[in-house]
Design a protein around this nucleic acid. Structure first.
Lengths: 140, 140
DNA sequence: TATTAATTTATAATTATTATAAAAAAGTAT
DNA sequence: ATACTTTTTTATAATAATTATAAATTAATA
């Protein structure tokens, strides 16, 4: 799991970054949503902050990414998706509903060491994305 | 390995698609280059076809993708990269030189079946991207 | 060689994202 | 509390990759 929201806020404070209401709301939304795009975060922010700008959302997400708090996922289609950083895991992308699911893949670590010995590459991390149909869409 | 160029051309002919010089050149470049962007293909095309348009390169790449002949890879940074379709494999992305290497990962198939049984997702394919430093850059 | 449909081209449009600079707000010192 | 300094937000414009459009060209074929 990922760290709780309070420690994220504390982490920013410790870096001398300001905890503006907009930033807190972006962070709160990242806890509520599943792999949202910047646009989705922006849309939902409008409920509490009717005058928030897209730029603020983009810059906050970028800030959080630079701090290692969020992870940016890019796919073939348009926008990036964002998630709170947590233990290395894979994603499953459903071609029917478009949903993105977290998937625990312990095997990924084995891949890391394997490639290291075989190919003499130094691996920092590995990204694993599955594509197919999720359970809900299979039974629907 | 991927199929040879003649069979790619034949595949297009069989579908009633025209083998224009531009298309043949795009295909030839895909055989010569390693995971190029559309822009890179376009730049190199200019040697033989000074008047070729970017649109032609984009539409040809899209056509080849729709035919299953090329595979489009998207990364966080700007443009898509393209490769000829071949047996499922992983990529290694070097953060130093920016190079993209094909990596044979037989383990990926195991991941497929694993997730299928564990999570009851139906997996079509899996994309595995390693990030780190390649051998050449480590020793340089 | 003429015909017809596919393809290429030039151009403009689109979309996600980033740059810029002024206005507003946060944190700090007085 | 108040003024000051710096960060952050905002509005706006710019950028960059890609796609849409429509006219001109060309490949395949009759």
């Amino acid at each position: 799991m990922h760290q709780d929201m309070e420690s994220v806020l504390e982490q920013l404070r410790a870096k001398g970054l300001r905890l503006t209401p907009q930033r807190v709301e972006v962070i709160a939304l990242l806890y509520q949503l599943s792999h949202p795009t910047a646009e989705q975060v922006y849309s939902l922010m409008a409920k509490k902050f009717p005058y928030v700008s897209q730029t603020t959302v983009y810059s906050t997400l970028k800030l959080l990414k630079d701090q290692g708090i969020v992870n940016e996922l890019t796919y073939g289609d348009r926008s990036s998706h964002f998630e709170l950083t947590e233990d290395e895991h894979a994603h499953f992308n459903c071609k029917v509903c478009g949903g993105i699911y977290d998937v625990d893949v312990k095997e990924a670590e084995k891949l890391n060491t394997m490639i290291k010995t075989d190919e003499q590459f130094e691996v920092d991390f590995v990204r694993v994305e599955f594509y197919g149909t999720c359970k809900a869409c299979l039974t629907a």
